[in-house]
């Protein structure tokens, strides 16, 4: 805590504490309320990610932003969008291991959503083979951006996750979506990396909720 005259204020009120960390061998200034990804971007270092958005709660799901950190003697891999920036942290954002991880994750995503520009672009950067895994096209990579956007920015809660594991999917909740979405004007489409939202909405708008999915796919 910092003493200011007679008033006692907490750290946050006094502004976040400035820290120094090393990213790819370069000393970087950051503040304590940032995560590694934000600190890196602030320093002009590009770390790929598909589930991070500066205005939304970090989610840590796509794992593309995985980086290597060293703290004391211990080196390990963490998702940079959810790991807090720390004084003295040593970060590597591009190593052989990281490239292998990103390549494989992109290959998995390309099996779901082929032809998506951002995936193709990242895929070619990390040498991903789009045909490595058997395709199962859902065109959704389950990054959760639309769900969080709808919850946190629009406060409408019209989109949610349904199911779990390999059956996890994003779905509009028909009753809420019918009311909220036309007013909002589908702003969530602007955050969707694959552009699957219109068809997803159409799916929910089908009057019979039990409409067999296989016919639409």
């Amino acid at each position: 805590m910092v003493e200011l005259g007679t008033r006692v204020v907490t750290k946050r009120e006094a502004g976040p504490v400035q820290i120094t960390m090393t990213i790819n061998g370069v000393e970087v200034k950051a503040s304590e309320d940032m995560n590694i990804l934000e600190a890196a971007r602030e320093a002009g270092i590009d770390v790929p990610t598909l589930c991070y958005h500066k205005d939304l709660t970090p989610y840590g799901a796509c794992r593309l932003c995985t980086v290597e950190i060293t703290k004391g003697k211990r080196t390990r891999l963490v998702a940079s969008c959810v790991y807090p920036a720390e004084e003295g942290l040593i970060v590597q954002t591009e190593t052989e291991t990281i490239t292998r991880i990103r390549k494989t994750i992109l290959e998995m995503m390309l099996a779901r959503a082929p032809g998506v520009p951002v995936l193709r672009e990242l895929g070619s950067r990390y040498g991903a083979d789009s045909r490595r895994f058997d395709a199962d096209h859902t065109f959704c990579i389950l990054c959760g951006l639309c769900v969080r956007y709808c919850d946190e920015i629009k406060n409408a809660h019209a989109i949610g996750f349904v199911g779990r594991g390999e059956d996890l999917e994003v779905s509009f909740i028909p009753e809420i979506a019918a009311k909220e979405c036309p007013d909002c004007g589908w702003e969530c489409m602007s955050v969707c990396p694959t552009g699957v939202i219109p068809s997803n909405y159409a799916l929910a708008a089908v009057p019979h909720f039990s409409y067999p999915k296989s016919l639409i796919r």
Binding site: Y59, G60, A61, C62, R63, L64, I101, T104, I105, M108, M109, A111, R112, F133, D134, I141, L142, G144, F161, G163, R164, G165, E166, D167, L168
Partner: peptide, 21 residues
């Protein structure tokens, strides 16, 4: 595990399913 994974992160959701295949 494929049925019990929560499905949130890509490596577990997609990777384990690809291994199972």
């Amino acid at each position: 595990l494929v049925g019990e994974s929560c499905g949130k992160c890509t490596p577990c959701r997609e990777g384990v399913a690809q291994m199972l295949a």
